[in-house]
Design a protein around this nucleic acid. Structure first.
Lengths: 255, 255
DNA sequence: TTCGTACGCTGTACAAGGTACGGAGTACGA
DNA sequence: TCGTACTCCGTACCTTGTACAGCGTACGAA
């Protein structure tokens, strides 16, 4: 799997689980030793502390002190578990109203809330939501975020487009930040060390005169961030562009 | 691996391979039956036709009609192969100069070139380039794209920021488009079918009155795109916002 | 001509992952 | 006192990257 995807399981079963529309407890057999929420929480804890790649059925089971196959009593498979994790994270997001504030503050607030979510749960950024989990968390989130764009003169389709645009920006930032952290971790090399390992070798093959702009700008950018990728800087720069881009849509005279 | 990453191998060995700064051919033993370029091309073909997940050492080897382990004579490991694939794709991008054109056309051209690259090689969008392949392809690409932002009054650091911003946007679009295609393929369900499978069940649990904006906007957006995710629309909408966002940086009076 | 050596190629093996299958044990209704 | 419907889980299969060791080849030296 190049990228994990939400809603990859059976739609009917997934919706039932998301909304906890579970069948009444069975009449026969021993009582269950765990709960669905317990399983989901364990998976989220595992992902928070060790990353999405660490969310394996075996590791989640170990965390709950049961055998791997036991989890399949609670969840049809890993795909559904991912949906439950994501909707659970959405559900726990704080949602403070910004009614009455200028639109830039409202949209920036939406972006920041999502940045905070993905900072607390970096694994969530790695999950593609082309087919979002249609659970209570996602619904509440969508409603809340749309309300920040309501009443600005955008039609309904443009509201959806604009929100998707903002969220895609934040997710892209979070993914890059997570990738940068993973690169440092996996290679056991900081960005500076990595650059130091490459620079002398690169000098031997790279012709700075053939690529003058690249040499100049690369050096300047490297110096500005201390040869390290700076996620916070990318977010600040990008969010300002995103808001200015939306301004042309929102503040422009229409008619 | 939640996401593949470029430059995950040994920096020195990777640079040697990228720049084809290979040691002279050995004096002893049988001649090699394949070439590095042949291996890289086979891997790219495999990725183009079956996706990044299909690029396994075994499948690439099968395509070349050799045993899996044979590839390790040409490439230290899969991480280095990914770098070679990516730099190879960069190398083959067309680079037409847009000197003299208005800056919006020039930047849009950069975005379109990258969209075309990622349309031809969707797997490239799935590879994180926080630590880019430092090969001839990446260098030529960086020089070319920076030149589109040169002479607009941006300082060097802002040029790098702006380019990264544009490229991140295009990559995010391409990833989402690829994820949407993969969702249709894997689930054997079109977006419309998937929605049809969810709608009746969702009606039973979703309270439209509790989420009025979500219900209204969701319906409008769904109707506008025929309940299908539309990557081309997202790209058009987003690129317009990106350019307007940069305009505030470039066209604004500075002093 | 005959090796020694260095090298290309490959068969086997291991660990980690999701999960199908079927068996052991448990508790309620009849 | 069962039959039945559960929960839980041991085992097993398939796939992946790649370490390791063995086999065969071809050049330089003797």
């Amino acid at each position: 799997m190049p990228s994990e995807r939400s809603n990859a399981g059976d739609p009917a079963r997934t919706l039932e689980l998301l909304w906890r529309a579970t069948a009444p407890p069975p009449k026969h057999g021993p009582a269950q030793g765990l709960t669905l929420d317990g399983v989901v929480s364990a998976a989220i804890s595992e992902a928070d502390s060790a990353g999405l790649a660490a969310v394996t059925m075996r590791r989640v089971a170990t965390r709950l002190e049961v055998a791997p196959m036991t989890l399949y009593t609670y969840v049809p498979g890993k795909a559904e578990l991912l949906d439950l994790m994501l909707d659970g994270a959405y559900q726990r997001m704080p949602r403070t109203s910004t009614a009455g504030r200028p639109w830039r503050q409202r949209v920036a607030r939406v972006a920041d809330e999502n940045r905070d979510l993905l900072a607390a749960h970096p694994w969530a950024a790695a999950i593609s939501t082309v087919r979002p989990p249609l659970g209570p968390g996602a619904m509440a989130k969508y409603e809340h975020e749309l309300s920040a764009l309501d009443g600005l003169g955008l039609d309904d389709v443009a509201m959806d487009d604009a929100l998707a645009y903002v969220l895609a920006f934040v997710q892209a930032c979070a993914r890059t930040a997570a990738d940068a952290r993973a690169a440092v971790h996996d290679s056991a090399m900081s960005d500076a060390q990595w650059w130091a390992a490459n620079a002398p070798l690169l000098d031997r093959v790279f012709d700075a005169e053939a690529y003058p702009t690249a040499a100049r700008v690369g050096a300047a950018a490297g110096a500005a961030h201390g040869t390290a990728y700076d996620p916070a800087h990318a977010y600040r720069f990008g969010l300002a562009r995103v808001l200015d881009g939306l301004a042309a849509l929102i503040d422009a005279p229409r008619g």
